[in-house]
Simulated assay, not measured.
Amino acid sequence: MYSAGGKRLLDVAGAALLLLLLSPVLAGVALLVWWRLGRPVLFRQERAGRGGMPFTLWKFRSMRDGPGSDAERLTPLGRALRATALDELPQLVNVLRGEMSLVGPRPLPPAYTPRYTPRQAERLRVRPGLCGLAQSMGRNAVPWEERLEWDARYAARVTAWGDAVIILRCAAVLLRGRGVAAEGHATMPPFEGKGFRGDSREGP
């Protein structure tokens, strides 16, 4: 069964292959970040994984140190990395370690977990992913309540075909440059915990 074992095998094989193929890109981005922002090159932050278990997520650093809001500290290089999702590439290591999947709900801060409705908490039934159903609908332009509903729908029905469709849709959104950030924010505003009552339609 795909969700019971096949998905994990594909995650390991896919992450290992991508790390090998993209190693020159990873090295180039690391050098750029070191040159423009200094050390550390990687940004580490605790996120909630499957079952709400915390893990350390890795990203390339995109903000300068110092005072100011996220939007003020986000550099031109950081904007370019986020627009192309190159800042997320170190998470392939998280995939290899079993903390993430190639496809799944994006990992969010543990502080958000108590704010979920029972429906929204369904997203924690599966490993978080590099790309997800909500991201395929428009990345950070999708409002929180709608985004968490798509995550819950994904967790309720995980299939190989569905994952393949999500990857293709995420690639299309990325190529079109859609949804890099919510309006007026560096990425998304904080999740405040409002529930969402979606319709009965099923996602892929």
Rank of each mutant, 00 (worst) to 15 (best):
M1W: 00
Y2L: 03
Y2W: 11
Y2C: 11
S3N: 13
S3G: 06
G5H: 05
K7L: 13
L10S: 08
L10V: 14
V12A: 10
G14N: 07
A15Y: 02
A15C: 05
A16D: 03
L18Y: 10
L21Q: 05
L22C: 13
S23Q: 07
S23M: 11
V25Y: 08
A27T: 11
G28Y: 01
L32W: 12
W34P: 11
W34A: 15
W35H: 10
L37D: 01
P40D: 01
F43Q: 04
R44W: 00
Q45M: 12
R47N: 15
R47H: 08
G49R: 13
G51Q: 00
F55K: 11
L57D: 11
W58I: 06
W58F: 10
W58E: 00
K59F: 01
S62L: 04
M63G: 09
D65W: 03
D65Q: 12
G66A: 12
G68P: 08
A71Y: 00
P76W: 04
L77P: 08
A80E: 03
L81T: 07
D87V: 15
E88Y: 07
E88R: 14
P90E: 11
Q91C: 10
L92F: 10
L92Y: 04
L96A: 13
L96N: 13
E99W: 10
S101K: 06
L102T: 11
L102R: 04
V103D: 02
P105M: 13
R106P: 06
R106F: 05
R106G: 07
P107L: 05
P107Y: 01
A111Q: 14
A111T: 14
Y112D: 15
Y112I: 13
T113V: 13
T113S: 02
P114S: 00
P114E: 00
R115Y: 06
R115H: 08
Y116I: 10
E122M: 10
E122G: 15
E122N: 08
R125S: 09
P128A: 05
G129Q: 01
C131N: 06
G132D: 06
G132S: 04
G132K: 09
L133I: 09
A134Y: 04
S136M: 04
V142S: 08
V142R: 01
P143F: 00
W144Y: 00
R147Y: 01
L148M: 14
W150G: 00
D151H: 03
D151R: 02
R153I: 01
A156L: 09
R157H: 02
T159K: 09
W161G: 15
G162F: 00
G162Y: 01
G162V: 08
D163C: 03
A164Q: 10
V165G: 00
V165A: 06
I167L: 14
I167N: 05
I167K: 10
L174D: 13
R178C: 07
G179E: 08
G179L: 14
A181G: 09
A181T: 12
A182L: 14
A182W: 14
H185G: 09
H185F: 14
H185Q: 15
P190T: 10
G193S: 06
F196D: 13
D199P: 02
G203S: 11
G203I: 02
P204I: 10
P204Q: 03
